[in-house]
Design a protein around this nucleic acid. Sequence first.
DNA 1: CGAGTAATTGAACCCGCTCAACTATCGTGG
DNA 2: CCACGATAGTTGAGCGGGTTCAATTACTCG
Lengths: 238, 238
Amino acid sequence: MYAHAASTAVAKIDLGGLAICHGLEQRARSHVAAIATIQQAHEGATVFCEGDRADNVYEVASGMLRLYKALPDGRRQITGFLSAGGLLGLSHNDLYLYTAEAITEVNLRRYPRARFERLVDEVPGLARRLLTATSDELRAAQDQMLLLGRKTAMEKIASFLLMMDDLHRDGGDADIVRLPMRRNDVADYLGLTIETVSRTLAKLKRDRTIALPTHDSIDLCDRDRLEELAAGDGGMDS
Amino acid sequence: MYAHAASTAVAKIDLGGLAICHGLEQRARSHVAAIATIQQAHEGATVFCEGDRADNVYEVASGMLRLYKALPDGRRQITGFLSAGGLLGLSHNDLYLYTAEAITEVNLRRYPRARFERLVDEVPGLARRLLTATSDELRAAQDQMLLLGRKTAMEKIASFLLMMDDLHRDGGDADIVRLPMRRNDVADYLGLTIETVSRTLAKLKRDRTIALPTHDSIDLCDRDRLEELAAGDGGMDS
DNA sequence: CGAGTAATTGAACCCGCTCAACTATCGTGG
DNA sequence: CCACGATAGTTGAGCGGGTTCAATTACTCG
């Protein structure tokens, strides 16, 4: 689901390749495909807001989204970044529980919620697939709780870089990971400020653990070192 | 150690009342009940450890558990407290993703994982029920991410007290909420130290927002004030 | 090239942590 | 019943990692 080979090489979006149905039989797939419509969101656009009536479920076809919750005074916590195959809007509540915005140009498959829910009950295996997907998200959320509650800024950044590397290990350059999101998003994902993100990356750069060829790509020169740092085995040497 | 008052007036645990089957037809319920065995855990006991082979799925019949993840150096993040009806061990992975320990005396229903998984595919509606339960956990996890990443100590404590109140609003005394867990657990749940938890509770007590009749129960005198604080609308008056 | 936004860097501050001492509570056994 | 030790919780003093505020530099796109 998160792993997704050569994603950006897809000149035309595969409208039939519904990731939620992966592994289901053809008849089931067509049932689900039947209620899907396509929607685009340009960079920066809001797909839906926390608190809106949850009328649709979405699946990411291409591009990347940020999901976040906010406090009344504007403080944000990004709960996750979603790329091709990711599902959103799946609350069994009446309202969306978070806001979804496009980080890049995004293509979405939209499923009207009422009809989608009916399919979950009718299409054999679909509930099971969604359960797997949701369990995966929950696992990621629990990892993130450990990160937010107990890791230092350095450990957070190291964990984040390795995470992004896992996410789209897309056969490109070996150790180069692309960060489509801004520093602002990184900060709000890790529970830090943009200044701390910037300073921490600068320190990793000085230590030659990473290199920053451009602003939105990072070369993980010393992955072993990053893994030590991410686990809290950072050692005492500054 | 903890007397565990009126709530557990259940002399005999209801072995048939499987919460995961709530709403399923009788035949489905009996299928699930058929593979359940009972297990007890005394206070402080470990049910399973992060990284152990995930051989069983459990359901809490009574009592309370803490689930947590830990870093190599011992830092802990409690990802949740589970009471009657809660499920644990549901990873679709081979290994448990967190450690589960009993906070009070606990009664569990244990389901061998292989057989449980088979039932998920065979019993109609079961996957759907588990999806609902998991979605609920995910929602809670996302709220907790906002708390851990962006709330102040005071906001964390206020949110926590209201959460505990919601959790077992069991018709007992109007505003008295019982905290079965130790300060240590509260701290590791909120990403704070025990000292900060203690100091913050003391401040709320000085402000007459709460009262502490005993160590493990809290009187929410001014719930409105707590809700302001929890949302970050704390106001400027010390 | 120039305006606007994003990112970096520096300096001072502060919230929550660390370290330490003290107090309260509980369980045990004389 | 109290004495005792062990554990949990509270309180205080000082520190420090990360924030805040501010200035500078680097991009991006007309």
